[in-house]
């Protein structure tokens, strides 16, 4: 029966992880409606996750759009459908690529940073110090971060959409010689506002998931500096997985 043990442990771990997330989520939601609401901490997190994350997110978006245009052009040229490169780039950016890639980049950048920061607070007793100062650590640490995630990731996605489409446009028009007017026309002809909104809804959910997981992993850190490292890795891995898995279900629900 020995082989069953690791399987069982895995299942228990998974259950515990979800249980922890749900518990902490409950505490966060309660913390959200309890005073004091820390506007300054939220602003700090918005700057850290959003403003400071702009370069990496926007670079990703530009090059994703550019590569997408390049690849679809090569494929579409084979059956004389080059005109539709713009549509494909815009549709895939808005509905799928911008939310998911932005989510992944923010996970790598900010989810991990949150896990590391909260994790080292845990191992240096700073979280205990918060409790001793009659401050709910979940409210104090989670609420501004998760709120920032929900607000900022859709904002980043809006910019990623614009930059991705621009990247595709530059490649198609400047590099591949597509007609600029036709390209722009085709880019927007088949787009629906729903494509934009659904991408932003996704982004909000991703922002929520990646910050919740980042905070949870940091909060539940044990075992000193090594534990902080583990928490950081786990925040990125679990955050990315959560984004990709939830993406599938969101796509099913939203379209």
């Amino acid at each position: 029966m020995g082989f069953l043990e690791p399987v069982g442990r895995l299942a228990l771990d998974a259950l515990e992880f979800h249980g922890r997330c749900v518990t902490l989520l409950g505490l966060t939601v309660r913390g959200l409606f309890r005073k004091p609401f820390d506007g300054r901490a939220l602003a700090t997190q918005v700057v850290r996750v959003g403003f400071d994350g702009l370069p990496v997110v926007l670079l990703t978006a530009v090059f994703t759009g550019a590569v997408l245009a390049l690849q679809t052009y090569v494929g579409f040229k084979r059956f004389h459908a080059e005109a539709w490169v713009g549509s494909v780039v815009a549709l895939s950016m808005l509905r799928e690529l911008a939310p998911v890639l932005t989510g992944l980049m923010v996970t790598g950048r900010s989810g991990s940073a949150m896990a590391a920061e909260i994790g080292s607070m845990r191992v240096t007793e700073q979280i205990d110090a918060l409790v001793s100062l009659a401050t709910d650590p979940v409210q104090y640490l989670f609420v501004p971060r998760i709120l920032a995630g929900i607000i900022v990731v859709p904002m980043l996605v809006v910019l990623a959409n614009a930059l991705g489409i621009t990247g595709g446009y530059l490649v198609a028009v400047r590099l591949l010689g597509a007609n600029p007017v036709v390209y722009v026309q085709n880019t927007f002809q088949f787009l629906d506002l729903n494509d934009l909104w659904s991408g932003l809804v996704k982004a909000g959910v991703f922002g929520f998931l990646l910050t919740l997981i980042g905070c949870q992993q940091g909060f539940d850190t044990t075992g000193g500096a090594e534990g902080v490292g583990r928490a950081t890795t786990a925040a990125v891995v679990l955050g990315s997985l959560a984004i990709l898995v939830s993406d599938f279900f969101l796509t099913k629900v939203l379209f």
Binding site: V46, M155, L159, N161, F188
Partner: peptide, 17 residues
């Protein structure tokens, strides 16, 4: 600055679509 850029991009996208 961030919010302004986002609003601008959003406006362009919505109006274009």
């Amino acid at each position: 600055l961030f919010a302004l850029a986002v609003l601008l991009a959003l406006a362009v996208l919505v109006l274009k679509i």
